[in-house]
Design a binder for these strands. Structure first.
Length: 693
RNA sequence: GGUGAGGUAGCUCAGCUGGUUAGAGCGUGGCACUCAUAAUGCCGAGGUCGAGGGUUCGAGUCCCUCUCUCACCA
């Protein structure tokens, strides 16, 4: 066994101005699989992340919503944490760049930079909005491209001809904040002397700090010579004030990566981990950052230099991945393919997405396409048809003929050994983040396992009572092969693996457990570990989502969101919705009367295999008859306790197809979700079918 | 415009340092089986490897040109 490594891992900080989408989740899943793999291998591995909360966009967004920036980022933080958790992203700490710890680190590192002579001050001419009384970032100045004369372009580059320039070059510039014509003002800015770190950075890049193709990309910047980096912004700005410079703030990209340290420091505070052991210049722990290729610049040039200038260790490596496209195209709100994490979770189990992404994730920086038709067919075929099928087809015989007891030895030791031996390649693939390769190998083994069962034909043997011991041997072999596969897949499918382990009456698995066969022990009767997906259900993922529709009529996403007690508007944040629903969306009594609310009596409530949030309810609506309704209240209510209760139901909602059937209405409940969901009920005396008005 | 990544069967992708008839999964056609969530197994059809040129005994695999897609440009 290799030496036990100490590893700290991060994924990029999501910006706190909106909900997580599948692009964020792709990165989080890649990171999480790698982290779970390291833990499974017995290494000491921690995963931290945080919200990126500073900068002009968040300041302006909060203003437009009439709340403070602090309120905005607090709300977003709750949403982000919930989405990550539901995607089974096992972060050890999720913080915020707007934390006391982060402020301390920023101040301390900046002062070290300054004292070591790495900070310069220079005058910078910048667009200023006199009506909004603020300096304008490049993206907030719009005008006509000086090269090709395309109107309405941002201040840094032209979308039409691709030229890059500065806002001062734009013709007819206007402030995107107020619409007024900006003026040009000088202001003193603070610069980090990146140029002083050219040689060490080059060494770091060339010696395994990044993937090869990334190193080639970075050569572009090295060959031009590194420019010093402007790390300050003028007030008003939402961020941290620079300690020795009143009204000057740290640029958001200065404090964002430092947020990694702050988040890890929070983890250290509540455990016995020592921050210094991970971040002192001579640390032997590993530090890995997973990021999208769009932010390479900050992570491979500024960040290692900023750390080094503060006498801290540099990252072991920065791993960049490509972007996610949906059905071959960029995610787009207008096409409805801007799929939020929440919207996905309302329709499908998280592990299906984890598997799908893993099956397509290489170690390079190529973009990944999520083809929605492929998604369901692949999941149904590989997970249900092949993988889970192995257990499903073997377990019955063991339960029926062998009293749930496995045989005492293997039927085909050679095949078992081959499965164990294949683990080394699979582990190496995980290690180099080539999840697709790992999954390919694992599924090839699954094919061999099915071939094995087919070749032994236990269903034929079982017809002859004298051959029952043989059946037990074959099925014991099959289940052992299945067990190895589930151990290998545990980083990708943590929940399914846990359920498989408990089916085999084991408590937990480490990677090396794969080599030890499970013999002469009892197993539980098999219960389905995965449910087949309805291919048509993916359409629910790409319906256009608009805040207006969600707020006005509870259909589609908003309906199931309401059923789980959350208000979530997809493309826009929950806070947008909260603000507009009070001010802008008053409805008339006629509008209200269109909603047919009824008292309903719950006749039965049951758990649904494969759905960890839903309950299937059968309700009595009196004159309207009986209905089947799915409600996202499983975490809050025991099915048994619901039977007989009088609740309130929307009776004229268009039926909605879900994976498990059609929901013919919506049960009303209040609360933020999870365990905090509170069903509305009618006082005794009400009878099923009564109108609520 | 500059730089990087990519263009391989209907779809999504493997093809390591160049070497016999270019692979996988899904989909598709046929057969078998019935233990398994209409699951599984076997056989088959499907590609002039973006275009053109070059190096080589031999090139998806190296070089040049062109073309299309995507990304980044502090």
């Amino acid at each position: 066994m290799t030496q036990r490594r100490r590893i700290l891992v991060t994924s990029a900080l999501p910006y706190a101005n909106g909900p997580l989408h599948l692009g964020h989740i792709l990165e989080a899943i890649q990171t999480d699989i790698w982290v779970r793999f390291q833990k499974l291998r017995g290494h000491e591995c921690y995963y931290v992340c945080a919200d990126d909360t500073h900068g002009t966009p968040i300041m302006l967004k909060a203003q437009s919503e009439g709340i403070s920036a602090e309120q905005l980022i607090a709300q977003i933080n709750v949403e982000h944490q919930r989405d990550f958790k539901d995607m089974l992203i096992g972060m050890d700490n999720f913080g915020s760049t707007h934390s006391a710890e982060n402020r301390q680190f920023c101040d301390r590192m900046y002062l070290m930079h300054r004292d070591a002579g790495y900070i310069d001050r220079r005058m910078v001419r910048q667009a200023y909005d006199e009506s909004a009384k603020m300096f304008l970032p490049d993206r907030y100045v719009k005008g006509t491209c000086p090269v090709c004369a395309t109107p309405d372009q941002y201040g840094d580059s032209c979308e039409n001809c691709g030229s890059t320039y500065t806002p001062a070059d734009l013709k007819n510039p206007l402030s995107a904040v107020s619409g007024t014509i900006p003026v040009w003002r000088e202001s003193e800015h603070y610069f980090f002397k990146l140029s002083a770190f050219e040689q060490p950075l080059l060494n770091w890049v060339r010696n395994g700090g990044v993937q090869e193709s990334v190193a080639r990309k970075l050569d572009e910047w090295f060959s031009q010579g590194l420019r010093d980096w402007d790390i300050s912004r003028d007030a008003p700005y939402f961020g941290f004030e620079i300690p020795d410079a009143p009204l000057k703030y740290f640029y958001v990209w200065f404090d964002a990566p430092i947020g990694y340290l702050a988040s890890f420091a929070q983890l250290c505070e509540r455990s016995d981990l020592k921050f210094e052991e991970f971040f002192n210049a001579d640390s032997t722990a590993e530090l890995h950052h997973f990021i999208g290729k769009d932010i390479l610049y900050f992570h491979t040039l500024f960040w290692p230099a900023v750390l080094q200038a503060a006498a801290m260790r540099r990252p072991t490596s920065v791993h960049a991945h490509g972007f996610l496209t949906i059905n071959g195209q960029k995610m787009s709100k207008s096409r409805g393919t801007f799929i939020t994490a929440r919207r996905y979770l309302q329709n499908f189990p998280s592990e299906y997405l984890r598997y799908y992404f893993a099956a397509k994730l290489g170690s390079g920086i190529d973009d990944m396409d999520m083809n929605l038709d492929e998604f369901t067919t692949r999941l149904n075929s590989e997970i249900v048809g092949k993988l889970v099928n192995i257990a499903s087809r073997c377990a019955g015989f063991i339960t029926k003929n062998s009293a749930g007891r496995l045989a005492g030895n293997l039927e085909d030791q050679g095949l078992f050994d081959a499965f164990v031996a294949a683990g080394e390649n699979i582990a190496q693939a995980y290690e180099r983040r080539d999840m697709a390769s790992a999954v390919r190998d694992i599924m090839a083994l699954a094919d061999r396992a099915n071939q094995y069962v087919d070749s032994r034909k236990p269903w034929m043997l079982a017809k002859d009572a004298a051959k029952l011991p043989q059946v037990q041997l074959v099925c014991t072999q099959g289940l052992n092969l299945f067990r190895i596969l589930m151990i290998y897949l545990q980083p990708v499918l943590p929940q399914m693996a846990a359920r498989a382990a408990s089916f085999l009456q084991e408590s937990s698995w480490e990677w090396r457990d794969a080599a030890k066969p499970l013999l002469a022990s009892s197993i539980h009767p098999y219960e389905p570990l995965a449910v087949r997906l309805d291919p048509k259900a993916v359409q629910n993922l790409i319906e256009p989502e608009t805040a207006a529709a969600s707020a006005a009529l509870p259909t589609g996403a908003a309906r199931s969101a309401a059923a789980t007690g959350t208000v979530h508007a997809g493309a826009s944040s929950a806070t947008t919705l909260a603000a507009t629903s009070v001010e802008g969306n008053l409805i008339s009594i006629d509008d209200f009367s269109r909603i047919d609310l009824r008292v309903a009596k719950i006749l039965s409530a049951e758990l649904i295999a494969g759905a960890d949030k839903l309950l299937k309810l059968r309700v009595d609506l009196g004159e309207l008859g009986h209905r089947e309704i799915f409600a996202g209240i499983r975490a809050a209510y025991d099915p048994v306790s619901l039977v007989g209760r009088l609740v309130v139901v929307v009776a004229n909602l268009e039926p909605r197809k879900m994976r498990f059937g059609t929901s013919q209405g919506m049960m009303l409940a209040a609360g933020p979700g999870g365990k905090d969901i509170f069903a509305l009920s009618a006082d005794s005396g009400a009878t099923p079918g009564m109108r609520v008005k």
